[in-house]
Write a protein that binds this DNA or RNA. Structure first.
Ligand SMILES: [Zn+2]
Ligand SMILES: [Zn+2]
Ligand SMILES: [Zn+2]
Ligand SMILES: [Zn+2]
Lengths: 134, 134
DNA sequence: TCAAAACCATATAGCCACTATAAGGTCAAT
DNA sequence: ATTGACCTTATAGTGGCTATATGGTTTTGA
């Protein structure tokens, strides 16, 4: 299986596959005589794993860590669960930040209707005056 | 006022100020004979404006656009309000994405307790099998 | 008085996870 | 013979900074 077929089967760009190889997330495949990469079923699974992690917005570093754990199957799995807990905490904290942000933005937006001159725009005034909490 | 004092008064790094100047968000200040930048009260206000926008996570491009509007004070302000509406829409859509993500992560986490070998880790299994929606 | 500390300058590279572009080699079908 | 689809490497760009290197200037104080 060549790179284009692998890319289509998983739904990523060929560039991304080469990028993962450079980053050490995908093992370097064998090459044909002409230099073309040849992938196996293992590469397909490995790439699918990476993509599932990325959909969950795990970082490449976190994925790398998970791959290291996979290499030591008889260790306790607590580190993996902790990694996920930390990631969940990041996501939750980001949600809260954005919810605060949304409130501020909505309140700012409420300070203007659409029928003013820029000079009198409530939004621009709100941004220009220092009445912002934090 | 030199760059360090400006930086401290607003709470940014001097590098950031030079960066904003390069990006065209802060007008280039006058220079002393030794080449040091000299800022005025206008620069302070302009930098404070940028930072308030950044706290609301407006992009530098959006801030640039707002600054262009400020230069045409007798135009109608609808474009500004629309810019903010679009930004609010981005934020809301990101919140929803992250909430979906959080649910998926929590459900994945629930598939493992802390007392297994990596081989049997529910989290790793969940990531390795293709049972993910989307 | 003179050296250290604090400040300023520019240029360059790194962060993250890709994405885009350039310039070219390989292969099958028309 | 040429098109088109595919493959290769190398390099640069995205955003919004932040860090580092290297060197000039000013201020402080022993
Ligand atoms: Zn994470
Ligand atoms: Zn308005
Ligand atoms: Zn926006
Ligand atoms: Zn586990």
């Amino acid at each position: 299986m060549r790179i284009g077929q692998l890319a289509r089967s998983i739904g990523v760009d060929t560039q991304t596959i080469r990028f993962y190889e450079r980053e050490g997330l995908l093992p370097p495949p064998d090459r044909q005589d002409n230099g073309y990469r040849v992938y196996t079923e293992r590469h397909v699974e490995r790439l699918a794993f990476i993509r599932r992690c990325r959909i969950l917005e795990l970082s490449l570093a976190e994925i790398h860590e998970l791959q290291r754990y996979q290499g030591a199957p008889h260790q306790p799995c607590r580190a993996i669960n902790t990694l996920l807990d930390d990631h969940i905490a990041h996501v939750r904290s980001r949600i809260i930040d954005l919810q605060v942000l949304e409130k501020q933005l909505v309140s700012l937006r409420a300070s203007c209707n659409d029928d003013r001159e820029i000079e009198a725009c409530g939004v621009l005034e709100g941004l220009s005056e220092g009445n912002m909490q934090q």
